[in-house]
């Protein structure tokens, strides 16, 4: 009864978070599945009894072990997601910086063209005269 109520409360919290747009559908569905598992765990304890007996542990220990495994898997999955997002953030930040530099260069060139068509490129972007590196 206690676990059932806990599971229901957890599921309701997830639905509220999803409605507040704080959770994407993907994670909402995953956590609702976890909530349902918690809610049904009292019934599952009975189902798991033969397995617990075979492993010579109590059913509640089997349940806690399974819960811990699920939570660890979720943590690893979220770490993978976070790693991917960090990589994406880095790539986007770099792409933004490179694009920003090109736009500023083009704007400077356009401003130079409209002011004086034969204006020389800015010192910052001017490539140096080609000369061999001393060796």
């Amino acid at each position: 009864m206690l676990l059932g109520s806990l599971g229901l409360l957890f599921a309701l919290s997830i639905v509220v978070l999803a409605r507040l747009q704080l959770l994407t559908l993907r994670y909402t569905l995953g956590w609702i599945l976890v909530a349902l598992t918690i809610g049904a765990s009292e019934a599952l304890t009975g189902v798991g009894e033969p397995l617990a007996d075979a492993l010579d542990i109590r059913p509640i220990e089997l349940l806690l072990g399974l819960a811990l495994t699920i939570l660890l898997l979720i943590a690893v999955q979220l770490s993978i997601t976070a790693s991917g997002l960090i990589q994406t953030l880095r790539t986007l930040t770099e792409a933004h910086a490179l694009t920003d530099e090109r736009i500023r260069r083009l704007e400077q060139a356009a401003a130079g063209d409209s002011a004086a068509p034969s204006a020389a490129p800015s010192a910052a972007n001017e490539k140096p005269v080609e000369k061999p590196v001393p060796s």
């Binding site: 953030l89 880095r90 930040t93 770099e94 933004h96 910086a97 490179l98 920003d100 530099e101 260069r105 010192a123 910052a124 972007n125």
Partner: peptide
């Protein structure tokens, strides 16, 4: 930039 460099601006610290 004033000293003559091309500047790439990262909007967040990487």
């Amino acid at each position: 930039e004033q000293a003559g460099a091309t500047v790439l601006r990262l909007v967040v610290n990487l």
